[in-house]
Every structure is written in structure tokens, then in C-alpha cells.
Design a protein around this nucleic acid. Structure first.
Lengths: 232, 232
DNA sequence: CATCGATGATAAGTATTTGCTTCATCAGCT
DNA sequence: AGCTGATGAAGCAAATACTTATCATCGATG
């Protein structure tokens, strides 16, 4: 699970974000001050840092600069900055500071998640960019976001694609609906809906798969679904 | 991918530049001293050299002069010089030294990228000058900056042209809007604007393409756009 | 300094995706 | 076989994403 450190003195925002990010398989931690932040970076070794510009002690620019300066300690920790308004753009993202992206407040939580994924992807750390081994006739080129089934290119929607990726990363693992719901970013359904079933059904359809004699996605009655790894 | 060699003793700047240039499909390498630099030029055969004026051992002017003097060894390696301040201009760019361009510190990263492209273009090595294979009825003559669709010359604006070039260099690759935004130099849009969509739309229009049954540019829903390479 | 073309912003109009409902079907059980 | 709860699939509707016309802005040009 991705660890996210938030340095922001707005307690409420921190909590909301923590809660929200949890839905997307990210564990957030909040540091209210820069000094606390530095401490936590060392302890937590987060995968990404969300940094508010307005902070006590020193501002976010300063913090960012410091982290970049001491890259020997902090490495290339990806940084997303939250700015009070839409100004300053290039200065932040650009070299001078070395942040990876910025987001003006107020922002949509979705937007934040999208950006986090973006950054993680750029730093080569995201699931959707990890190499996926061809299995059973399906070949995924994650850098092109292209899926081939028996050499034929498939046209998948975002959700379908992500579901497939998830399955292929863990062939033969049985996922419960709950699990799938949580692991698929952006899924936004009622607790007891059949959204997952629907999604699986649609993916199956595009894969030319049938639930009765599945080549790819097997139904595990009472539990969930399994992506079949190898023919045996 | 373009190889860029940076000779600069400022470690931090080097790292940040490396990171930043990576976004634009350029692989940067840093040499902290001139002697190390010469060594790496021979090994790497970079496409362009970024040279700081302030260096240990000998200054950037000296390095530049030496490279030009030994053109039999180093060829016409394009050189971009970084100067501490805005002075000295002509001396650097002029014949005396033979640098191709200069940029005073501090600079905007965008500006640097723009200049790199400029130099590479002049030295006939840039993407916009690289040969582009005719695809699907579109034939681009990069040296004349002329685009023919089914033997008819099209009148494209700068942005449209660059977008097309980018697409044609990576047929069948799906670009996200973010990616396009970053890769198209000169694009300067707000965070949530439809600037890219607009541009695509305009290019499509001039190509006589329709979004519904695209011959060239396919919309990848939820992701971005793809230039169709071959009919399948 | 007026004009024109290029380009970004905006918003109304479409299109597609996706969650939900419903109902037929199926697995597991007695 | 018959019952029960789980699953599959089709259709619908709301949410979300895309297209494009139009306007505003900016810079180049004369």
C-alpha cells in the first residue's frame, strides 16, 4: 500500500484527505509542521509527499527546496504541492523548486488522486505502468495502454483496463468483490451494488469469455473472481 | 531518445535538470568537471552539450573553445552555454567561441527546453526535422515543413504541425492530454482547459477527420488520443 | 495602432461510460 | 426435484468525458 505523507497545518483537511485516500489504497499520514514532517519522512519513507505552501515555521517552498537539496538523504521523493491559488505555476513545478506537480486549492479530491497517480507513474512506481507478463493470449503494453488478445487489439474502457491489469498482476488469485471495489481506483459505487459484477461481465464480453467455460475470468461461487493464469 | 550532457559543478542543478528533461524525452547526464566532461563526450556521444560558464579547472569558455578547436574529434556537437548573468551575450554566441546559444541564470525550465529544441532543429537533428514515414496518406516533408494529405498540401499552424509530428512519430501510442501538453513546446494552458482538445479538433478538421469514424486520430475515452498507424 | 491569424477559455451540445435495476439462470443444498 | 441465495445479462439513467462553435486575448505584421 502506498504511503503518503501530508505536511499541512490544517487538521481538518488532513483528516479528510486521509480518509479519502484510504479508499484508493493509500495510507496517508499528516504532519502539522515542517520539522515534524522531516522527522516522519525519515521514519515512514513515504512514496509521495503532499506539501502545503502555507505552513508554520517555514513555507512549503522552503521545505521543498530543502528536500531536494538533501537528496542524498531523501532521495527523489516525489512532491505534490498545494498552492493557495492558481498563481506561481511554473515556478513550483519547474526546476527552481523541483516539485513534481502542484494543485491549486480548493481542489477536487478526484483531481488529487489523479495527480498522485500521475506522479507515481512518472516515477515508475505505479501499478498501471509495471510490466505485465503475457498470459494466456493476452498481451498488455502498459506504456501504450494497449491490450492485445491473440494479436488483436482490444478497445477497453478505463475501468475495464484497470480491472484487467489488476487481475493479470495476480493470476490465480481470487478477489472478492470488496477487494476489487477497493483496489480499482475511481470506482464509486454503493456498498451492496452489483457494479463489480457488471464490470466483470463487460470485460468478459470484450475478451470473448463466457462464465460457463471461462478461458480467463473464473467465477468463484460465493467468493468472487479469479483470473486464470495458465492452461493446464 | 536524445542524450544531453551537462557540464556543471552544481550537483543540485544537474539532478533537477536531469529530472526535468526526462519529461521531454531527453536523457541527461552530468559531468561535474571539464575533464570528466570530455571523457563523457567521447563515451556518450551526446546530441547536445549544456555547459556552465563557471567551472572548476577551466571555465566554460575555454571548454567550448577546445571542443570547437578539436572538431575532428568532437564534430559539430551543439553547445548551449549557461551564463551567470545576462552579460557577455555576443561573445559567447559569436564566432569567437562557437557556442550555439546561451541562457542566463536563473532561467525558466521551459525556456531551456525551448532553446534545446531550437538548437537541435538548427543542427538538423530535432524531432521536427527527423524524417517521418508517410502513414495512411499523410506525407510530411520536415525540411520544408510541408504536409501533404493524399497529395494535397495542407496549411497547418505551428501547433497543429507539431502535434501531427508528435503523433506520427509514435503511431498507435496513446497520449494523455497531460503528456501532449508537456511534449508540445509552447503550449501554455490553464490546468483544466480544453486546449489540447481544441487543438486536436482543429487538426482533425484540417485532416478532414471525424471523431466518430476516425481515419487518423482516435479518441481513447478516459485516457487521451491515439494516432492510427496502420489500418488493421 | 489597426488588422489578422493563432491559440486558449468557455460553454452548449453529444457521446460514452458506468452504476443500478430487474429478471432469468445457476450452484449448492436438502 | 425443489428451494434459496448468488450470479449473469440486458436495458436504463445519471455521471462523466469529449467535441466544437464562438469569443477573448495576444503577438506579429504592416
Amino acid at each position: 500500500m502506498k504511503q503518503i505523507l501530508i505536511i499541512d497545518d490544517d487538521e481538518k483537511l488532513g483528516e479528510l484527505l486521509t480518509q479519502y485516500l484510504a479508499r484508493y489504497e493509500m495510507q496517508a499520514h499528516v504532519a502539522m509542521t515542517p520539522s515534524k514532517g522531516f522527522e516522519m519522512i525519515k521514519k515512514l519513507k513515504p512514496d509521495l509527499l503532499i506539501l502545503d505552501v502555507m505552513l508554520p515555521e517555514k513555507d512549503g517552498f522552503e521545505v521543498c527546496r530543502e528536500i531536494r537539496a538533501k537528496s542524498s538523504i531523501y532521495g527523489q521523493l516525489p512532491i505534490l504541492m498545494l498552492t493557495a491559488h492558481a498563481e506561481v505555476t511554473d515556478r513550483i513545478v519547474g526546476l527552481e523548486l523541483g516539485a513534481d506537480d502542484y494543485l491549486p486549492k480548493p481542489f477536487e479530491p478526484r483531481e488529487l488522486v489523479a495527480r498522485i497517480h500521475n506522479i507515481l507513474r512518472r516515477s515508475g512506481d505505479d501499478a498501471t505502468l509495471r510490466e505485465i507478463k503475457p498470459i494466456n493470449g493476452i498481451d498488455v503494453d502498459t506504456s501504450r495502454r494497449e491490450v492485445k488478445l491473440d494479436e488483436v487489439v482490444l478497445d477497453l474502457t478505463t475501468m475495464e483496463y484497470e480491472l484487467l491489469i489488476l487481475f493479470m498482476q495476480y493470476p490465480n488469485k481470487t478477489f472478492t468483490r470488496d477487494e476489487l471495489m477497493n483496489r480499482l481506483r475511481g470506482i464509486d459505487a454503493e456498498l451492496f451494488s452489483r457494479a463489480v459484477d457488471t464490470l466483470v461481465s463487460r470485460l468478459r464480453h470484450k475478451l470473448g469469455d463466457t462464465s460457463k467455460t471461462p478461458r480467463f475470468i473464473k467465477t468463484v461461487w460465493g467468493r468472487g473472481y479469479t483470473f486464470i493464469g495458465e492452461q493446464r
